[in-house]
Amino acid sequence: MLATLTGLGLSTAAGLNAYIPLLVVGLLGRFTDAVRPPDEFAWMTNGWVLAIIAVLLLAEVVLDKVPVVDHVNDIVQTAIRPASGGAVFTATAAAAEADASAWMRDNPWASWLAGIVIALLVHLAKASTRPVVNATTAGVGAPVVSTAEDAGSLGLSLVAVFAPILVIVAVIALAALGWPAVRRVRRRRARQAGRAG
């Protein structure tokens, strides 16, 4: 159960920022015993891989705070964030095999699929609300919202590793914060469709 909650938290974090949970898992796996990725995920702890992820994270942090550029970045991230979610979910579920369910151990594709779907759903919600934030704040809100997303991704990644039982609370809080924004996007699109028709 705890391995699944860890995977849930990390893949949710990957939907907000692909590189933060990868870097958290990689650094903790390299320098501590908090996470021990299995052999097939040893690449996550490689120094060169960590350096590349850190550079990509820096680029993401900068690009995601610039209006319009953030939208282009979200399009590119549509493939990257779900892949990251699948990787961190599977790496941590496999690392905690003693804690993982027998079904998850026997069907590793299930953790890949779960991580991909969770990260994709979070990413789609994030990507659909950002144009509304940019339009309603004349772009001023982009850096604020992006910084909150990065902080949320880091916080959720750390909670997922060190206090996985709290992931349930964190995911509910994220959904409660995100749902009103998604509803505003839907209302705005409905109004625009009404004007066009």
Rank of each mutant, 00 (worst) to 15 (best):
G9R: 00
A14G: 02
G15Q: 03
A18N: 08
A18Y: 08
A18S: 02
Y19A: 11
I20S: 07
I20P: 06
V25S: 00
G26S: 11
L27V: 08
R30K: 03
F31D: 05
A34Q: 07
P37I: 12
P37A: 13
A42F: 13
N46W: 08
G47H: 01
L50V: 04
I53W: 02
L57C: 13
D64G: 05
H71W: 06
H71C: 06
D74I: 08
V76P: 07
A79D: 01
A83E: 08
S84D: 03
G86K: 10
V88L: 10
F89E: 04
T90A: 15
A91I: 09
A93R: 12
A93D: 15
A93C: 11
A94F: 14
A96F: 15
W109A: 09
A110G: 15
S111K: 09
W112Y: 10
G115F: 05
L121R: 10
A127G: 02
A127W: 02
S128G: 00
V133G: 03
V133L: 09
N134T: 04
G139W: 11
V140M: 15
V140F: 13
G141I: 00
G155Y: 09
L158K: 14
V161Q: 07
V169T: 05
A170S: 04
L174H: 03
A175V: 06
A176C: 02
G178W: 04
P180C: 06
R186Q: 08
R188V: 13
R188H: 14
R195K: 10
R195H: 13
